[in-house]
Amino acid sequence: MSVFLNKNTKVLVQGITGTQASFHTQKMVAYGTKIVAGVSPNRGGTKHLGVDVYNSTIEAVKATKATASVMFVPARFVKDAIKEAVEAELETVVVIASGVPIKDMMEIKAMLKGSKTLLIGPNTPGIITPDEACLGIFPENIHKKGNIGVVSRSSTLTYEAVIETTRAGMGQSTVIGLGDDMIVGTDFVEIIKKFHEDNNTKAILMIGRQGGMYEETGAEYYAGLKYKKPIIGYIAGSTISTQDKMGYAGDIITRGKITTESKKETLQKAGIMVADSINRIHQLLENLK
């Protein structure tokens, strides 16, 4: 078992004909991902890298029964691409692009409400279930099958976290990047929940960062669980002060100044073990053995 993605998941690639999309599609296929279709407007009916190309997501889903998608479209077209994905009732959508406008993200979140679609990203490396399938841009060679569920809000630190599990002699059940953008589709709560439902996940590694309150809401949810799998956490940015602000509104929204320290405290209070440096995570993992 795994979360969201396994070797049987039928995947389509939105924007498959671009240079980056082509490079990563080849890598995903080589890893074993079941890529059944690509979408590229006006290229329908052709083949790209051996994959059937369709004009629209809806057409592609009808023809192939794909349930997941990875999107390589530029940030400014993400909203329209997600609209198609929602209408096609895809279950999981990964958005690689960074810098989707905030207004678009708010409209996207409104579209997703009540839909069947779960959005991972934007600005994420994606989802990978080691030795089964990869939905995104991960450097696959650092991954190993195992029992640690990794979830991270900092895209490149996701890789660092994975390397830490390897250093501890462990592997990963599924690795999920939530995305680095200001507003993301899915938060820690949803993923912590899924990892608790997954038999293959014995412990969770949660990587957070300064800014926003995603870590706090995740910790709050975890604190309320009756049955808990161990979580090891790390928050990047303890030595950064938030200077150069404009106005008071930001501090009012978060009901006071949110610091990395206050984040760590919230995590610890919820029963999460917090590593004080990213390269010390493997020590905490070894303690779980």
Partner: peptide, 12 residues
């Protein structure tokens, strides 16, 4: 590549 990595190194 990635702000989180920079923040982690700064912390280190």
């Amino acid at each position: 590549n990635g702000e989180g990595v920079a923040l982690s190194i700064k912390d280190m």
